[in-house]
């Protein structure tokens, strides 16, 4: 059984900075992580961060919408990945490329907890050591949690960005939405996901 830490709550508008945590992964990299409920949004934080320093794994989950168990779904999804109840490869195999990935994570959480009413988006990251200068990031993704890589030594950044797995992104890819602004402005991405799933 590996040891890991889960961050779930921050208080108020300064919660994220106040609850900021620092970790050093086994591979030697430093991680800063924080979460809060946002400014003027709600009393609930449905986001959840899990960090397994021993195995260089990080999961960020975002419980979806107003379902009563979305907060729980996010936490359970993080736990079951970091506890190894689903291997990292199983997680990526089941979720990646699925437009309804967020629903599948809810199903995943259900498998370990019984019936819950809630879904979650997530990014699961594993950093793997490789000989030489480069390290490999393996990324499992569902929904619109994002991962980007910034390289200070180059002009154009970010050098890598995950592509959302949402209905809105699918509409953009298919040309239904032609302007990237519409993707962000005209669609409520999470709502799109929920409507699609329902």
């Amino acid at each position: 059984m590996c040891a890991f830490e889960i961050l779930t709550r921050g208080n108020g508008s300064s919660g994220l900075i106040a609850s900021l945590s620092q970790f050093t992964l086994a591979c030697g990299y430093t991680v800063l992580a924080g979460t809060d409920r946002g400014v003027g949004y709600s009393d609930v934080n449905q986001d959840c961060i899990g960090i397994d320093v021993e195995n260089n794994r990080i999961v960020v989950a975002d419980g979806l919408g107003s379902d009563k168990d979305s907060e729980l779904a996010a936490k359970l999804a993080v736990e079951c990945i970091l506890k190894g109840q689903k291997s990292f490869h199983e997680v990526q195999k089941e979720f990646c490329g699925l437009i309804n990935g967020a629903d599948r994570t809810g199903t995943l959480a259900n498998g370990f907890s019984g019936q819950i009413e809630g879904d979650t988006c997530l990014i699961a990251l594993e950093i793997q050591e490789i000989m030489g200068q480069f390290k490999k990031l393996s990324i499992a993704q569902a929904g619109d949690v994002k991962l980007i890589v910034v390289r200070p030594s180059v002009i154009y950044n970010p050098i890598f960005t995950t592509v959302d797995q949402t209905v809105a992104q699918e509409a953009y890819d298919s040309g239904e939405i032609k302007d990237k602004r519409q993707y962000y402005c005209s669609f409520s991405k999470a709502d799109s996901n929920v409507h699609f799933l329902n």
Binding site: Q92, L125, I130, K136, V145, I148, P152, A190
Partner: peptide, 22 residues
């Protein structure tokens, strides 16, 4: 699964839509 290679000096950010939608 998505894979990407990083090197020393890079910074990786992971964030939920509370950040990404802003």
């Amino acid at each position: 699964m998505t894979q990407f290679f990083v090197k020393r000096g890079d910074i990786v950010y992971i964030y939920s839509d509370g950040i990404g939608d802003n």
